[in-house]
Nucleic acid binder design. Structure first.
Lengths: 342, 342
DNA sequence: TTTGCCAATGTAAGCGCTTACAAGGCGATT
DNA sequence: AATCGCCTTGTAAGCGCTTACATTGGCAAA
């Protein structure tokens, strides 16, 4: 195999017997080139196996048709799904996506943003709204279009998301409606994760509104895994009085909790009710199926792509897109058990 | 917010009162610049909020410290996990990752490879071994280092993977050992997916080796979702004689199958045994837990990164890395039920 | 035939950066 | 005091591409 250096525009030009400008036009504005020439050029392209060099093109044309996304991690189904839809929408518009992950670390996120800017991203997708002011400063000083997703944005920052606190409050009210008064929560790790923190806040708000003591709510934080959900559930069951309902910050924790409940000989929902959040595939597949908040992740990704493309194009657009989420009532939430004191 | 054009190297140079070469050196080889100058330059960088432009740098230096990966889809936990590890390993080496997805379409894959080459990727990660010869030609003509993952590579192509057929045969032998003779299979979609196809082949091989009629194996292909696994299971149960064991091409299908089995009033594994493949988190969380093939996806991602970096650096390296997978025996596989004819 | 215009192509100047090479300055050596 | 050599910095030539502008040729109109 010949390890040939990549052919360049001028190689093509030489082989085709035209100028580099003509080759460039052939590739970008074929209409400007007469058919015979075009064919000659394309033949040369074929023959040499020419592929345009992105750097050269970006440098000369000052645009990249590229947007970047910085997500906490790919190992979370909700991001994977949303980003996949985001990407599909972009591809449809001839734009490529650069994905970077921050591991939930704001410093790494800032670093990745720098990298993406350096790579000429025309716009950025960021997750959630909580990040240092310095990061927002950077973005705005650069005039870099960006869209926040998976949460509401502060100020007038453009976003495509939903109110996590409000949704958490909604599911909490449902739990209360079912007669539960001893409630516990298994939250995602809230440090550097405004979505997780907002969900805790939402639960507390709902309790307070119902005249209960929000500060008394036992909350255990757990990383995003079945196993950690299980462990947290077991710990929560040690709390006295024992919760009759456990509200989980996401479906994965909830599934872990259900599993442990069964292992502990507790019937769900007869002995203890469990709720989730996100409505990922597995939510409807566990037994009992999870009562949860349905979030249309794909739709959110698509809408985010549309908004970002509009911002980049400088078009007028509704900058604050609230996505509807809805409560999905399923088997894991039932009426509170009769207490002996009741 | 001033929508200032990005500051360039020469802006920094002007502010710091030095030449562009010195600024460049400050950023890339700080050792070559005397402390006083360095401080002055860094202050200017800070003040202007300068970020190096990737295109300019790539164009001038002929290297990008970038590798690309083309995966079928992000919406599959096994890729998400492997790629996450792949990325972490790269980041540790100061290399950035560009991810593209092909939607299991070889043409799109070739397209994405072109794009990544155009973007100056120093190397590529590709999934599986099956793709048109033209794609391999392109890669080799360019002298582009690449690593295949999630399967064995053909010829002497470098890979980090495992033998899907062999692993599938292994789990099939186990099923046979448990006394099952009426076996069915729910496979992933095999078109354009050599891993899925190899798994089917492996099952057939094992049956043949056991003196059974491999062609008689009922196989239903299903997309990667719980729901499709369920549907396929139900269809398979119409087959006569009804299978006492269902081998699934992946864990997601298997979980779907288990759920439907229960819904149909079939006990697992008493009435029907079900096996999976991949050992994703949920495999140990379903009831009964899945007997499956454990694949260390993260380890594979890390190893792939190491190999790719070595190839790029032109170092001598073992180019064919076979990853160990192992059978995880859990509750979903039990002895074949007594038949009336037995 | 001459003129004018337009379509097709060529010329060449960068885009922001790196890096050979040149130049300058200073201390050490003789 | 003269010379050398090294350390620091500057000069300038591209890297592969796009694109404003110049040039050419052909054809229609006069």
């Amino acid at each position: 195999m010949k390890d040939s250096p990549r052919p360049t525009l001028s190689d093509v030009a030489r082989v085709a017997g035209v100028s580099t400008a003509t080759v460039s036009r052939c590739l970008n504005e074929p209409g400007l080139v007469v058919q015979a020439t075009r064919e000659r050029v394309l033949r040369a392209v074929e023959e040499l196996g020419y592929t345009p060099d992105f750097s050269g093109r970006a440098l000369a044309s000052r645009r990249t048709n590229t947007v970047g996304a910085v997500i906490p991690t790919m190992e979370n189904a909700i991001f994977a799904r949303g980003i996949q839809a985001f990407q599909e929408a972009l591809t449809g518009a001839g734009v490529t996506l650069l994905v970077a992950s921050s591991g939930y670390d704001p410093e790494q996120e800032a670093q990745q943003i720098q990298t993406l800017i350096g790579r000429g991203a025309d716009g950025l997708l960021l997750i959630g709204a909580a990040r240092p002011a310095s990061t927002y400063d950077l973005l705005k000083r650069r005039g870099m279009p960006f869209v926040l997703a998976w949460n509401l944005g502060a100020g007038d920052d453009p976003f495509v998301g939903f109110d996590n606190a409000d949704a958490a409050a909604r599911i909490t009210r449902k739990v209360l409606e079912m007669g539960h008064r001893e409630i516990g929560m298994i939250a995602g790790v809230t440090a550097m994760n405004d979505r997780a923190a907002d969900r805790v806040r939402g639960v507390r708000n709902a309790l307070r509104d119902a005249g209960l003591d929000a500060d008394a709510l036992p909350v255990i934080e757990a990383p995003y895994s079945f196993e950690d959900g299980s462990r947290a559930f077991e710990a929560l069951m040690q709390h006295s009085p024992r919760p009759t309902a456990v509200i989980c910050g996401n479906d994965v924790l909830a599934v872990g909790a259900i599993k442990r409940a069964k292992a502990m000989g507790l019937a769900v929902p007869e002995d203890v009710s469990i709720t989730g959040f996100d409505d990922i595939d597995i939510a409807s597949f566990v037994t009992p199926a999870l009562t949860t908040i349905h979030v249309p992740h794909r739709r959110m990704g698509t809408a985010a792509a549309q908004l970002l493309l509009q911002l980049i194009a400088g078009e007028q657009a509704r900058r604050r897109v609230e996505i509807d989420v809805e409560l999905r009532m399923r088997g894991s939430l039932g009426p509170a058990p009769q207490t002996t004191t009741g």
